[in-house]
Amino acid sequence: MNEVAMTSSNPSPTEGTEPAGAPADELELVAKAQAGDTAAFDELVIRYRQRAFSMIYNMVRNEQDAWDLAQDGFVKAWKSIGRFRGQSSFYTWLYRILMNVGIDWLRRKQIESGTEFDDTMGLRNVEAGAVTAPRGELAPVERISDKEIRERIDAAIAKLSPEHRAAIVMREIDGLEYSEIAERMECSIGTVMSRLFYARKKLQAMLKDVYENI
């Protein structure tokens, strides 16, 4: 098997917008918030509430749940802001909290509904590297509305396990690098790549008729 040589041909969309550490004014707000200044923390909330909401929304695919979970994420951030050391931007730190809030919520929901996500569902008897998406079995769709596409995507993503869902959202939608995903999911890069492989295969199987007919 080959060693994988990584290239940086796919720059993260966070590049250029988020410096390695937190910017000075942000650090000042964080320092004030760490001292108990809720107004300073509110300023941070105003800066990042839309991004936090969008990120959670892409995970849970429901506006009301995303609102509640974004609130939970900010409350957790407030409670643990004393542990923020400024080694990354505030949003990077917040993102990890939000991701954990989202994954925990999906796991709870999975337990409550009795749903079991089989990460290798439909792939057991498929050779690695083989085309797994059904080919030409579905009737071509003349025109699918945006609303219908979104519903299909939501339904397909809902069938992914929380870990696969998080990996695909971070890579395909948020555009994070493997190393960033691994750091935020607290797992190895190899695990991230493996999760992406199976998540893509499952989504390809469920959405082939959609992406081939738009």
Binding site: M1, N2, E3, V4, A5, M6, T7, S9, N10, A128, G129, R171, Y178, G190, M193, S194, L196, F197, Y198, R200
Partner: peptide
């Protein structure tokens, strides 16, 4: 040593070179 799944993912994302 990477698994096939890891190499395939890197290949899809254009992360393999040389």
């Amino acid at each position: 040593m990477k698994t096939f799944e890891e190499c395939f993912t890197a290949w899809v994302d254009g992360q393999l070179s040389g």
